[in-house]
Design a protein around this nucleic acid. Structure first.
Length: 119
RNA sequence: UCAGAUGGCCGGAUGGCUGCUGCCCGAACCCUUGCGGUGCGGGGAGAGGAAAGUCCGGGCUCCACAGGAUCAGGAUGCCGGGUAACGCCCGGCGGGGGCGACCCCAGGGAAAGUGCCACAGAAAACAAACCGCCACCCUCCCGGCAACGGAACGGGUGGUAAGGGUGAAAAGGUGCGGUAAGAGCGCACCGCCGGGCCGGCAACGGGCCGGGCAUGGUAAACCCCAUCCGGAGCAAGACCAUGUAGGGACACACGUCGCCUUGCGCGACAGGCGCGAUCCUGCGCCGAUGUCCGGGUAGGUUGCUCGACGCGUCCGGCAACGGCCGCGCUAGAUGAAUAGCCGUCACCGGGAAACCGGAACAGAACCCGGCUUACAGGCCAUCUGACAGC
């Protein structure tokens, strides 16, 4: 998957979940955690609560398309982003997802800046 | 035309913009010159009929493994064929259902043995006898002066299994004869058992002869018989890179002899380990190692898609299927590509219309053959029954 670098192992996902910060939107949950790497990486998660395999795959594909169009130009190096699908991700209107993503990403970046300033 | 049966097929189409995975081609650059790497441009490909459940059968890989005997365990179970194989498919047979086309069946053995047969019922299997039916005896009672005679709706002894009742099932069925009443007691037909004949590869079917009839059901209870079966799975397995050192637990032999090149040597025999168990034959490994735990590392390549493959003509076969020839190459991902958004046209529902909704079951993960389950809507072929027309 060129263009997007994916988080290769379960350890990366667990790190994002435990030490990262998160923003909950109506159509998804966005998490971010600093890694100290040169590039930024993306992880996608769709649990069984999202639905059957078809719904999970569709939700993951829509989230990937979202990341490709909206996150690629705004992502910060040295950060792992994890997007978690929710039960309505597969059929939520596309424009709603886009606007929610902008809000969530802006929130996370502000929190990261604040934490960095305190240290 | 309506109702139905069987078999097969489809599972929206097309376009724009922005992207992804792997393949091929082209030019450029880089170096460790290779079947190399990097980005760029172009081309064509990219989920299913069930991809599902993971229920059977194989291929492939590892457990190094092969042959035989006995036992244990599991699966299958009418017959014949198809197949790599099957618990699958096809064609028959038998039984059951339907007016019919057709459908359904866990369909070997119950005179090898053991067990079980609830409730109800007298009785559930070397038969037995509750209400009955029949015969005989006694008595109440009646007649007679008496001897005695008659005689129950009562009692006893015996015969019987027709009828009643119970049950899923009551020891062949129906009819006639027969009898005290009855009974295969006798006869006819049906069924059953035995023998032989004919047809069929066979399951089985059809006559014939003999026998008055023995053998209840349950094997989806144990069991018997026949056939088949080693285990684990692509997270199999292989290679590269990284790492490779100390710790804990468990297992078992540590013996004899020979040779000279006297070595942490080689060889032989015992010994140990190795199929579910035991034994035999062969073979391999071990003789200070093996296995596991914990710790550490968990990145890349390969296996990975040309195959019991798909399509078509012809030939053989009732068919499943097989064969010859020709053409085609049709996903190979790995936190996991095959998409995101927006149109147009068809389909379904609502509406007078503009238009608004809906569109099933469901996502490859080593690959095939099946089974099972889920499924909006639609198409085709053949056949059956009814009605109408000719």
């Amino acid at each position: 998957m060129t263009g997007l670098v994916s988080i290769p192992s379960r350890a990366g996902f667990l790190a994002a979940r435990n030490s990262g910060i998160k923003a909950v939107a109506a159509g998804f949950v966005l998490q971010a955690t600093p890694t100290g790497r040169d590039d930024w990486r993306l992880g996608l998660t769709a649990s069984k609560k999202t639905g059957n395999a078809v719904r999970r795959n569709r939700a993951r594909r829509r989230l990937r398309a979202l990341a490709r169009s909206e996150l690629a130009t705004r992502a910060r190096a040295g950060t792992d982003y994890v997007i978690i699908a929710r039960h309505n991700t597969a059929e939520r209107p596309w424009q709603d997802l886009v606007s929610e993503f902008h809000k969530a990403l802006g929130h996370l970046h502000r929190v990261i800046d604040k934490q960095g300033g305190q240290r």
